[in-house]
Design a protein around this nucleic acid. Sequence first.
DNA 1: GTCGAAAATGACCGGGCGGTCAACTTGCTA
DNA 2: TAGCAAGTTGACCGCCCGGTCATTTTCGAC
Lengths: 210, 210
Amino acid sequence: MPTAARPARVDAVRNRALLLAAAEAEFAERGLDVSIADIARRAGVAKGTVFRHFATKDALVAAVAGDRLARLVAVARSLADAPDSGAALREFLSATAEILQHQGLTFLRTVSECDPVVAEIHDRLLASAGVLVDRARRDGLVRPDVTGADVLLLTCATVHTVGALSEPGSDLWRRYLTIVVDGLRPEGASPLPRPAPERLRPSPLPQGAS
Amino acid sequence: MPTAARPARVDAVRNRALLLAAAEAEFAERGLDVSIADIARRAGVAKGTVFRHFATKDALVAAVAGDRLARLVAVARSLADAPDSGAALREFLSATAEILQHQGLTFLRTVSECDPVVAEIHDRLLASAGVLVDRARRDGLVRPDVTGADVLLLTCATVHTVGALSEPGSDLWRRYLTIVVDGLRPEGASPLPRPAPERLRPSPLPQGAS
DNA sequence: GTCGAAAATGACCGGGCGGTCAACTTGCTA
DNA sequence: TAGCAAGTTGACCGCCCGGTCATTTTCGAC
């Protein structure tokens, strides 16, 4: 949103897109510890160009994470009035698993607290997930004591860990997501020992992302 | 197990124990990325002493992880013939969550593949968990299609992610472990889409631990 | 084609890391 | 108590990382 500024050069736009794609791929394949130099090489630009577009490495991570979260919000909203509320919730969780891949909450953890834009998308995602869970609960398909934050956290936990332990292309996470979803059903549910968290962000913000 | 070697000096034994304790605490509080210098400072020794006891940082991580896994194996074995097989399984999973804290599989991931000793303890843990799961399944308390590796993986995933997102002392993981355990019950279980993995170790070994 | 500004470049910097080693200290044995 | 091997120390090394900046290249308006 430039305030009536110059229209931005085409090579700059192209390089920014290349960088985002390269960073997303590198983060997904090798984790957040990949060096800026590797990302630049993959994008076919020099290292300095990275810092022209993203002031710091954290900002780059935030941009990638924001992209993914925004995609997830779009999925959740498109499912908000699907006929079968249970199928809608399952589909949303599958999309969460696929989009976040095995990075999952590592992204959010290192990012959401610092970057207000990402934090806001994050809040929108929580709200949208809450809508899906509320509908499924009203239809008696989900136990009364779980929230949108709960299902997001469980999904991220599962896909993140499984992804770290299996081959990149594997969909082993589907196995565990099935078990988790079975645990969300209301029939014979055990009482939950602790209240649900109201957000997924960490409180103490542990360290920088580098 | 020294082959009739000298009995080892007392200060060396003491420092080794101090180092293991310091490393365990640092890893638990700040993750595997803590520097060797920080661990040495916490243990009250010089950096060089660390490398006298552990040839490399990975070896130190392996030693700590091996300790924890061995503790877990002991718990599993002590529960192997408890009267209530369902309670035994739940107790084992709680112990897993508590002992691995929020490090969980990050440990195993960076270690088991490389270090044969840890890998062997790891296999023993899988076997012991399998015994507990088999008993609970025979008693009709667990769905027929889950294995010891499954429940370990789900538990580690949950406790790892939750631990990363809540205060250190929190036991919010109990909430999610309850949901997961509910998903393990046989009543109305959905068919699982993928076969269980036979081990928890990653296949491609992604990177060193540093 | 000209030209100025925006963008790209890559050599460079400071710092922190894992790991090494020669010099020094300490616990054990005789 | 003498002596020596085992253990400890901390300065040091090379490496790689995130980030900077003077220089060069490229875009696009006229």
